[in-house]
């Protein structure tokens, strides 16, 4: 059982976009869309010579408490128990867009041709991991700001880094901790960009209104049937049964 994660030393990121380009080619990400990103702070020029910008690479955080998975009614998006990757089963997806809204990191987009969500899966579906290669963004990164590995292996680079250095995670606003598996070596910035977890209206209505209504309706119906059945078994109407079996009616 593996638990893939990424530990990012954003202090060495030079915003060269190699990770974004590499990902795009490897995963055939369509024009205008990206599976990963580099965010940055806004420089404060009042600091004069000490003005700095911090660049911060990111992507799907493969959360342990994935709200995208929670928002998917069909299990088309799911967390892989074997490795912790949050996958999209495109063949099971009907493209309802619930998961895209439910991600506080904006890590998903609706693929314009396939019309299903698309996201980073640590290059799993491209076959890189199977071929023993690192995710495309990690492999290509000039300054090795992105480090990838298995958290359940204490000797992995990511485990070692997390032991050696204090790390932080970028968390969603609004109190829901999605338990992301993307760790930033402390002092990363910006850290306040994640949004709130937003379960779309269609999902909320289905979960809180429609589902109870259906359960009640079916339940009542089943209750009625049960009563009728019980009546038929335990106190059948004599005349009725006679009436049924005897050929000529009285009326």
């Amino acid at each position: 059982m593996k638990k893939y994660a990424m530990v990012i030393d954003s202090s060495v990121c030079i915003d060269c976009k190699a990770c974004m380009a590499s990902c795009k080619v490897q995963n055939n990400v369509p024009r205008g869309y990206w599976r990963n990103w580099i965010k940055h702070t806004i420089p404060d020029f009042s600091k004069g010579p000490l003005t700095r910008t911090h660049f911060q690479p990111g992507g799907c955080m493969q959360c342990d408490n994935p709200t995208c998975v929670q928002a998917c009614p069909s299990g088309a998006t799911y967390k892989d128990p074997q490795n912790g990757i949050v996958h999209v089963n495109e063949a099971l997806c009907i493209g309802c867009g619930n998961c895209i809204k439910a991600c506080p990191y904006d890590a998903r987009f609706r693929h314009p041709d396939k019309r299903v969500p698309d996201k980073c899966d640590f290059c799993f579906s491209s076959g890189r991991l199977e071929r023993g290669l690192l995710p495309a963004c990690v492999d290509t990164c000039p300054t090795k700001a992105r480090v990838f590995g298995d958290l359940s292996d204490p000797d992995s680079d990511v485990s070692r880094l997390l032991r050696d250095k204090p790390a932080v995670r970028v968390l969603a606003k609004g109190g829901i901790d999605t338990k992301p598996n993307m760790y930033y070596v402390a002092a990363t910035a910006p850290t306040d960009w994640a949004g709130e977890v937003e379960f779309p209206g269609a999902f909320t209505v289905m979960a809180t209104l429609v589902n109870p209504v259906v359960k009640v309706a079916v339940g009542l119906s089943a209750l009625g049937v049960a009563v009728m059945w019980a009546k038929q078994i335990f106190s059948p109407d004599k005349e009725e049964s006679e009436h049924e079996s005897s050929a000529p009616g009285k009326d």
Binding site: D80, Q82, L129, R131, G132, L133, L134, V138, D150
Partner: peptide, 18 residues
Amino acid sequence: SRRGFLQASAAVAATAAG
């Protein structure tokens, strides 16, 4: 480098999607 470190696990990864 870090290339190839995943190799040992490749077989497992292949069936991971289940």
